[in-house]
Structures are given as structure tokens and as C-alpha cells.
């Protein structure tokens, strides 16, 4: 079976771990638990007749004190770039992480993930220009790990972008 490494990238506390937990273990916790280093999980995604195994690398979030080290990106096929629009500064981290990927590995497919859609009334406008990011992304998706909205669709969209071009089909509903 095709196996691909996918990194979860974003600022701290945007919900990267919650998205993985929701998708892999079908659980959600309100309690914030920080990630140190990286947590690695595996999940098989079915895309029509084709299965793809995603190795999900949930990388620690960037903050004022620590940046993501390029070693964690080694061998990455694609990434989920997660922002929390209730905290517009997290767009800034997304822009810098996207640059880190481009500088380290060259362009890789990514999905721009606007998480915490259950708090949409608290979403704010971006503090940096993210139009280029939106244009580069294979998809821009709104998700909520809390309500499970858009989560499996986000991983399926990523998986679909990683399939060889001649075997891509439409993404089935779950």
C-alpha cells in the first residue's frame, strides 16, 4: 500500500493534535495539552478503490521561544497547515512555516486548515497577507475538531493530493 508522511504544522494551540486525535481515535478533549517534539500516528485513508496509508507527524507548534526544526520535515510528502482564526497571529506562523518547507524541501502539496469553525463568531481577519498561501494550497478547508466538522474531508483532501496523478478520482463521502 502507498504510504506517505504528512506533517501537521502550525502555531501552538491551533488544534493540530486535536485534529489528529479526532481523526485517528474519534476523541476530543477540551483540555489543552502541549506537544513536545513529534507524535507519530498512522491512518489508512480509503479513496474509492485506492487505499493510502498516512503517517501523521504531529509536530510541536511554533511559539515565541521555539521554531520548527527542518529535521522533522525530512521525507514529508505533504502537510496540513493549521491556523486558528480566533488568533490572527497564527496566520503569521503559517506563512513562516510554509516558507520553511519551501526553503527546506521545495514546494509540497498542502491543505490550509482554518480550525475551530465552532467558534466562527470569534474569527478575525488575517494580520498578514495570506492570499498567496490560499492560492498555493491544494484546498482551504474549515474544520472543527470539537464538532468533527470537515475533519475527515481535510485528511481525504490531503491524501487525494498525494496520489499519483493517474490514479486520482473523486473523493467519496464517508
Amino acid at each position: 500500500m502507498l504510504q506517505k508522511k504528512v506533517c501537521m504544522l502550525g502555531a501552538f494551540a491551533v488544534g493540530k493534535t486535536s485534529l489528529v486525535r479526532r481523526y485517528v481515535d474519534s476523541i476530543f478533549s477540551e483540555k489543552y495539552t502541549t506537544t513536545i517534539g513529534v507524535k507519530i500516528d498512522k491512518k489508512v485513508v480509503s479513496l474509492g478503490a485506492q487505499d493510502i496509508s498516512l503517517l501523521l507527524w504531529d509536530v510541536y507548534g511554533e511559539d515565541n521561544h521555539q521554531k520548527v526544526l527542518p529535521a522533522y520535515l525530512r521525507g514529508m510528502a505533504g502537510y496540513l497547515l493549521v491556523v486558528d482564526p480566533t488568533r490572527p497571529n497564527t496566520y503569521k506562523s503559517a506563512v513562516s512555516l510554509n516558507k520553511l518547507v519551501n526553503d527546506t524541501l521545495g514546494p509540497k502539496p498542502f491543505v490550509l486548515v482554518l480550525n475551530k469553525s465552532d467558534l466562527k463568531e470569534d474569527w478575525e481577519n488575517e494580520t498578514v497577507d495570506v492570499q498567496a498561501l490560499k492560492d498555493e494550497a491544494v484546498a482551504v478547508m474549515e474544520t472543527s475538531a470539537k464538532t468533527d466538522s470537515g475533519v475527515s474531508e481535510m485528511f481525504q483532501s490531503m491524501a487525494s493530493a498525494l496520489l499519483p496523478k493517474n490514479s486520482r478520482g473523486s473523493i467519496p463521502d464517508e
Partner: peptide
């Protein structure tokens, strides 16, 4: 060498 600290498998 590649070093990945604090890896949780």
C-alpha cells in the same frame, strides 16, 4: 546524522 528529539511513537 539526523536527530529527532522527543519523538513519540
Amino acid at each position: 546524522a539526523v536527530v529527532l528529539v522527543n519523538t513519540q511513537i
